[in-house]
Amino acid sequence: MNWKSFILGVAVGAIGGYAVKELISNKSDVSPETVLELVKKQFKQNGPISGSWIHMEAEPYKTQQIHYRVYKGGISRTNKGEDKQYEFIADATTGTVLEVRPFKNEFALKHNQ
């Protein structure tokens, strides 16, 4: 066996291993628990929260022609005796919050009319 073949084999193996590592690390999601903790931390900057939840499975989501895999969840807070709930949508790959909106309970809206 000559040294050129050996060195070429080692180099190709190292480059291949690095490429596989990068592909695997780019495809992994942030855990839903981590995303929920990040969202709670951001909400706590504006006051205490009284509850939170998150769906444990990422799901497809499209906004402005961009496709994501997201976690959906919610945060509750009490402000001046009034309970307010918010829904959030966070990117499953990065944990970045894509959208926050007040929670609208459609069941309660239909029955209060």
Rank of each mutant, 00 (worst) to 15 (best):
N26F: 01
S28H: 08
A19F: 13
G51R: 08
Q45F: 10
Y68S: 04
G9T: 14
N26C: 01
Q45A: 15
V10M: 09
I49D: 12
A19H: 04
L23G: 10
I15M: 06
M56R: 02
F43C: 03
I15K: 01
I7R: 07
Y18H: 06
K44Q: 14
A19Q: 10
V35H: 02
H67W: 08
H55C: 05
Q42I: 02
Q42E: 15
S28T: 14
Y18K: 09
K27S: 13
E57I: 10
I24W: 08
L23C: 05
G13Q: 04
G47A: 08
K21Y: 15
I54P: 06
Y61Q: 07
K62C: 07
I49T: 15
M56H: 02
G16P: 09
V20R: 01
L23P: 00
N26Q: 11
Q64L: 11
F43K: 02
M56C: 01
I15Y: 03
S28L: 08
T63L: 14
N26R: 07
Q65M: 14
G16Y: 13
N46M: 06
T63F: 14
V30P: 03
V20C: 05
N46T: 10
E33D: 12
V12N: 07
K40L: 06
A11H: 03
S28W: 03
Y61D: 04
S52N: 13
G13A: 14
T34V: 06
I49L: 07
A58I: 00
L38Y: 05
G51P: 09
I66E: 06
E22I: 13
I66H: 08
V30C: 00
G13V: 02
E37P: 00
N46H: 11
N46V: 01
K4P: 00
I24D: 04
Q42K: 14
D29E: 13
H67M: 08
D29S: 02
Y18V: 13
L38M: 11
G13N: 03
K4T: 11
E33W: 01
T63D: 10
S5E: 10
I15C: 04
I15H: 03
G47R: 11
I66W: 04
V20H: 02
M56P: 01
S25V: 10
S52C: 07
K27A: 11
V12E: 05
L23H: 07
S31R: 03
S50Y: 05
K41H: 12
I66V: 15
L8D: 05
F43L: 05
G51W: 09
P48F: 12
E37Y: 03
K41L: 11
Q42W: 05
I24T: 06
V30I: 10
E22G: 08
I24H: 05
K27E: 10
I7N: 08
